[in-house]
Structures are given as C-alpha cells and as structure tokens.
C-alpha cells in the first residue's frame, strides 16, 4: 500500500487524542473507508435515480439508527 499519496494521509492534531491510532490501522482505515464511502455515494445516487421513477427509498437510515438501541 505504498502507493498511498501523502495527501491522503492526515494527522491527529488534537492534543486530546490520547489514543495511538496505530500506523497500520490508520492507513488501512483510509483505504477501507474510501471504498465504503464510494458505496454510500453510489447508494445515494441510486435512490435518487429510483426516486425519479417514483420509487420510494426502502429504509430511512436515520430512523433505523434512532431505533438502534431499542432492538
């Protein structure tokens, strides 16, 4: 994963961040998150397209999250 450009790599400037995020954990997180973020973007555009055709989105993510602790 040495192809990661430096611009992708940010630091934890906050002096309250007392945890060591770990170099490997840090790098792999960026990679996984980029992939998953793209997934979310895709999902959002897909539901926009579906809405154009009058199909309502299946689940309201926020509502589901609000109930997460109720299960």
């Amino acid at each position: 994963m040495s192809f990661l450009p430096n611009a992708l790599i940010s630091g934890f400037g906050d002096k309250l961040a007392y945890l060591d995020p770990g170099s490997g954990s840090f790098l792999i997180q960026l990679l996984i998150a980029a992939l998953l973020g793209a997934g979310i973007a895709l999902r959002a555009s897909w539901s926009k397209i579906k809405r154009l055709f009058g199909i309502k989105p299946e689940v309201d993510e926020d509502a589901e999250d609000e109930e997460a602790n109720e299960q």
Binding site: N6, I9, L30, A33, A41
Partner: peptide, 18 residues
Amino acid sequence: IGGPKARGGMSRQSMLGL
C-alpha cells in the same frame, strides 16, 4: 502517518461508510 498539521484524508461520507 503525518504530522499534526497534515490535512485531508477521509471524507465524512467515507467515515459514515466505515
């Protein structure tokens, strides 16, 4: 993994995806 002043990296959307 970068100094304290480094910026950029992970978008909000990516964070949410994670």
